[in-house]
Amino acid sequence: QIFVKTLMGKTITLEVELSDTIDNVKAKIQDKEGIPPDQQRLIFAGKQLEDGRTLSDYNIQKESTLHLVL
């Protein structure tokens, strides 16, 4: 699992595989929060994550926290 922190300070827990693409992750956030993926920007280690890449491409591990910017 990974964590996604919103600017409102809310933390969302997502069940993911490290082979999941950023697209997949955004879809899971949409399922939980109702935010359309095209409005989501995910940040990790100061970098904006690109849709076609996977979590492992960015060296994101289990229990990592991503930041969601709208």
Rank of each mutant, 00 (worst) to 15 (best):
residue 16 V to L: 03
residue 31 D to C: 04
residue 55 L to D: 00
residue 28 K to E: 10
residue 26 K to Q: 05
residue 18 L to A: 04
residue 31 D to Y: 03
residue 55 L to H: 00
residue 59 N to Q: 13
residue 69 V to E: 15
residue 69 V to D: 15
residue 12 I to L: 12
residue 4 V to M: 03
residue 53 R to A: 10
residue 54 T to H: 08
residue 2 I to T: 01
residue 55 L to Y: 01
residue 24 N to D: 10
residue 65 T to S: 12
residue 38 D to A: 07
residue 38 D to K: 01
residue 47 K to V: 15
residue 54 T to N: 09
residue 53 R to T: 09
residue 65 T to I: 14
residue 44 F to W: 02
residue 9 G to A: 09
residue 33 E to M: 01
residue 23 D to I: 06
residue 18 L to F: 07
residue 13 T to P: 11
residue 39 Q to W: 03
residue 10 K to C: 05
residue 55 L to E: 01
residue 21 T to R: 06
residue 14 L to I: 05
residue 6 T to F: 05
residue 9 G to N: 12
residue 18 L to C: 03
residue 30 Q to C: 05
residue 46 G to I: 04
residue 17 E to D: 08
residue 49 L to F: 02
residue 43 I to N: 15
residue 44 F to V: 02
residue 34 G to D: 09
residue 22 I to H: 02
residue 61 Q to A: 11
residue 2 I to Y: 01
residue 37 P to T: 13
residue 23 D to T: 07
residue 32 K to W: 13
residue 52 G to V: 12
residue 12 I to Q: 10
residue 18 L to I: 05
residue 55 L to I: 09
residue 54 T to F: 12
residue 47 K to P: 02
residue 7 L to P: 15
residue 12 I to G: 01
residue 28 K to L: 10
residue 13 T to A: 05
residue 34 G to N: 10
residue 38 D to I: 03
residue 20 D to F: 12
residue 22 I to R: 01
residue 4 V to T: 02
residue 36 P to F: 05
residue 44 F to E: 07
residue 37 P to F: 13
residue 43 I to H: 14
residue 35 I to F: 13
residue 8 M to D: 15
residue 56 S to Y: 01
residue 8 M to L: 05
residue 30 Q to A: 11
residue 35 I to Y: 08
residue 61 Q to G: 11
residue 52 G to I: 06
residue 16 V to M: 03
residue 53 R to L: 03
residue 12 I to W: 07
residue 50 E to M: 13
residue 12 I to N: 04
residue 58 Y to F: 12
residue 34 G to M: 06
residue 25 V to K: 00
residue 49 L to S: 00
residue 6 T to G: 15
residue 4 V to I: 11
residue 36 P to W: 06
residue 50 E to P: 11
residue 40 Q to A: 06
residue 9 G to H: 08
residue 61 Q to L: 06
residue 3 F to L: 06
residue 55 L to G: 00
residue 49 L to E: 00
residue 39 Q to Y: 04
residue 21 T to D: 04
residue 18 L to G: 02
residue 48 Q to C: 03
residue 59 N to I: 12
residue 32 K to I: 10
residue 19 S to C: 01
residue 1 Q to H: 04
residue 60 I to F: 02
residue 35 I to R: 05
residue 20 D to K: 13
residue 63 E to M: 02
residue 70 L to E: 14
residue 36 P to H: 04
residue 44 F to G: 14
residue 3 F to A: 06
residue 3 F to I: 14
residue 11 T to G: 11
residue 59 N to G: 11
residue 33 E to T: 02
residue 30 Q to P: 11
residue 62 K to H: 13
residue 29 I to H: 00
residue 48 Q to E: 14
residue 15 E to M: 04
residue 70 L to C: 14
residue 63 E to L: 02
residue 43 I to S: 15
residue 14 L to S: 01
residue 26 K to F: 14
residue 7 L to N: 15
residue 18 L to W: 03
